Computed example of a mutant assay.
Amino acid sequence: METLMAAAASRCPVLSQASAASRETLMRHALLRHVERGTCIFSHGAAAESGYILMGGWIKITRTQPCGAISILTLHAPGETFGFADSIRRLPRSATAEAATDCTILSVSARSICQTMRSDSSFGNAILSHSFQQNDSLLQQLEALKIFSGIQRLACFLLRHAKPGNGRHIVRLPFHKHLVAHYLGLKPESLSRSLAKLKEYGVRTVPDGIEISNPGALEALIGETSDIRHREIA
């Protein structure tokens, strides 16, 4: 388990900026958890006592409106972090985090995060930069919802989550596509139609996921060829 925690610290965009001594301190106050799909990691309004690193699986961040409607703010993939901003500000949780699949998460105590920020300026700067990047990503997501068509939003999502291997790019979705549709602001039938239209851009459904044979064609469809993956929340 210690090896796994050390690996998480080295690959995390925030923890990797901490000194070796700081990382060791943070890991002493970290807890590795395996949670089942549907498990609530934290609830909107609850005390923020930890920041999280997603080791495996997918996490959805949501907010529930007074009428009962649920908005999916973002989906987190393995290697990403969530819940840090509320923790360092010591504010109640601004949203709810729920396991969209079975997950492995590493939680780091808010107290140790704040102490390390004060003692390690590089780590403190990394935390601030990470928070700004997440805010920028939210603005970019809002922009995409306002100006991109459904097929363009789907193309953004696929490009961001595509993993290269064996000469191809594959997006593996371990959950039902209606979750992606909800996140992208589409109806499930609209998502299916958009996915069908993307066939002419080199996208097809295969047994192990969604295959992209020509990422450049999707970038051209979106109309932007640089940093496409940052059009989505990271």
Rank of each mutant, 00 (worst) to 15 (best):
L154M: 03
K187C: 02
R193T: 14
E200M: 11
A234T: 09
L195G: 01
I212H: 07
V206M: 10
K60S: 05
S87L: 01
A126L: 08
E200Q: 14
P66C: 06
P215D: 05
S213A: 12
R90P: 00
F148K: 04
E200L: 12
L31W: 08
S71C: 06
H130C: 03
L31M: 11
L15I: 02
E143Y: 12
V203F: 02
T3A: 15
Q141A: 11
P13I: 13
A217N: 02
C114A: 08
I70W: 02
L128R: 06
I212C: 08
K187P: 00
S22H: 10
C156E: 04
A46R: 03
L128D: 02
Q17K: 15
V180G: 01
T104K: 04
I113S: 00
H178K: 15
S19R: 09
Q17I: 03
E2K: 10
L106G: 07
A126I: 05
S71A: 10
L15P: 04
A8V: 13
T39F: 09
A21N: 10
V206Q: 11
I105L: 15
L75E: 06
L91C: 09
K60Y: 01
A95W: 00
D120A: 01
A100M: 13
H161I: 09
H130F: 14
I70K: 14
V206P: 08
M117A: 01
L159D: 03
L179I: 14
S129M: 11
A220S: 12
L75K: 08
I61D: 07
A47I: 14
P13M: 13
L26G: 06
K187T: 05
S43M: 05
Q65K: 13
A69E: 15
Q141S: 10
R193E: 15
G209V: 05
A100Y: 04
D120L: 01
R204Y: 08
S22M: 07
D208C: 10
D120W: 00
T96M: 06
K163E: 07
L73K: 03
G79V: 02
I88P: 02
H34M: 05
G202C: 09
H169A: 09
I212A: 08
M1Q: 07
G209K: 01
E24W: 01
V180N: 03
A8T: 11
L195P: 02
H76W: 05
V14Y: 07
S22N: 10
G79M: 07
I210H: 00
R168N: 06
H76Y: 06
Q115G: 03
M27I: 09
E232N: 10
R172M: 10
R172C: 14
Q140A: 15
A48Y: 04
I228F: 11
I61F: 02
R33K: 13
T25L: 13
R229M: 10
L15G: 01
